[in-house]
């Protein structure tokens, strides 16, 4: 292997991420090549400097603050409740409309049943928008990060 190829894999070598056969080849090369050894030494110095940066000071109140801010329950339960509430509302509206129709048979100016009109308003796409739970958490599961600064 020539120096260019070695240098390209030197970072992964430092991170211990190479297959053992390749690792041995690089070790052998390093024993004989001063230039590549200097590269690695410089890389090791960089890592030491990065690791010497002090981490943020520990905040003993952090867990308590998070716990105090927790919402009532995790999302699925909340969503289930919300869905149940909407289902109840729909049942009430349609049942109400059905009862009105069977009992009175009253119609509005367009000849439509008032309760049916109300139901159709609820069924407008915009009204459905109210039901859509806004949550960007779903992108957690595709895992693909293409954010580029």
């Amino acid at each position: 292997m020539n120096c260019r190829k070695i240098v390209r894999r030197l970072s992964a070598f430092q991170d211990g991420e190479l297959a053992s056969s390749l690792e041995r080849q690089i070790e052998m090369h390093l024993r004989e090549c001063a230039a590549c050894s200097r590269e690695l030494a410089e890389m090791n110095r960089l890592r030491e400097r990065l690791l010497r940066l002090p981490p943020p000071a520990a905040d003993p109140y952090f867990p308590g603050r998070v716990m105090a801010l927790l919402p009532g329950r995790p999302a699925a339960a909340q969503r289930l409740l919300r869905a149940a509430a909407w289902a109840a509302l729909f049942i009430a509206v349609f049942l109400g409309g059905f009862l009105l129709k069977t009992s009175a048979g009253a119609t509005d100016a367009d000849g439509r049943h008032p309760a049916a009109t109300f139901s159709s308003v609820l069924l407008e796409p915009q009204a459905f928008g109210l039901l859509a739970v806004h949550d960007d958490s779903l992108d957690l599961f595709n895992g693909g990060g293409h954010e580029q600064e």
């Binding site: 998070v66 801010l69 927790l70 919402p71 995790p74 999302a75 699925a76 339960a77 958490s137 957690l140 599961f141």
Partner: peptide
């Protein structure tokens, strides 16, 4: 952490 809690069911 708040988001983790809310998304825990997933």
């Amino acid at each position: 952490f708040l988001k983790i809690f809310v998304n825990l069911p997933y």
